[in-house]
Design a protein around this nucleic acid. Sequence first.
DNA 1: CTAATATGGTTGCAATTGAAACTAATAATA
DNA 2: TATTATTAGTTTCAATTGCAACCATATTAG
Lengths: 147, 147
Amino acid sequence: MSCDNGSLSLQTFLPYRLSALSNRVSQSLASKYSKQFGISVQEWRIVAVLGESKSLSAVSITNRIAMDKVAVSRAVKKLLSKELVIKYVADGDNRRYDLQLSEKGIALYQQLVPIALSYEQKIMAQLSDSEQQQIFSFLNKLDAIEL
Amino acid sequence: MSCDNGSLSLQTFLPYRLSALSNRVSQSLASKYSKQFGISVQEWRIVAVLGESKSLSAVSITNRIAMDKVAVSRAVKKLLSKELVIKYVADGDNRRYDLQLSEKGIALYQQLVPIALSYEQKIMAQLSDSEQQQIFSFLNKLDAIEL
DNA sequence: CTAATATGGTTGCAATTGAAACTAATAATA
DNA sequence: TATTATTAGTTTCAATTGCAACCATATTAG
């Protein structure tokens, strides 16, 4: 569907379309998170990743999700002030802090997961079966390539 | 491929994956544009849209691409200072400015189009034929839905 | 014709982001 | 054991963004 004839229209330019869609989705999710739970997308991502695995340092978080350490540091600071996570010096390394969800954080996580999943379902429901099957394989391939 | 069992992993959460991919693509393009041409992605988008249609007001630009009028205003200001576009009061409406590419802007546009297209090709080449066929239909469907 | 409303575009200010510099602690090297 | 190099995380400062208020012109309604 993209054009191959030396001319360019943003409407058929994959990077633009990808960015426009992703921004729309992100912003709609961001406003949901913010209105209902008072947290940002970054904060939610950290909560999500901590919800999956009991205890992580900032660096391990950076390795799991697409956030650099500065962003993690700032988001964690906010999560701490909201008492959604707790932080303690790691065993055997005084530079590192291990983070885990607090009681309050776990409660938030458990509230948020079904909302996030049903949101995703709403999107997926718009796609044909074959599209649903291909979308993650597509994302995986693209994640693997050098840009 | 996403999970349907009430648990959530960011790695299989469509909004997250979409955002991560789109950011990666955007950033790599942004650095290309910036290094080679000294312009931002927003500026490039405006150049692209002006390259397609001779003359547009700021509002028409916002209607065509996913940029709000503040972003357009600021990007246009930079393009003017770089002398890539020219601006003149519109016929019959003294509030409106019509914008078009300058000679220099056209030259930039003509340089950039093939680069952008070959970049897109590099991405598309990673996808199977059926994926290439489905990707824009997929994007179109998602653009159409309410979030 | 005048008052109210709407539209095109810009500006100001606060919040967010990015990049580099920084502190503190660990690991590696000699 | 000193010395250097890495690593974890934070801070700082400038640039970018987002939102609301703003000016100027156009349009509409009374």
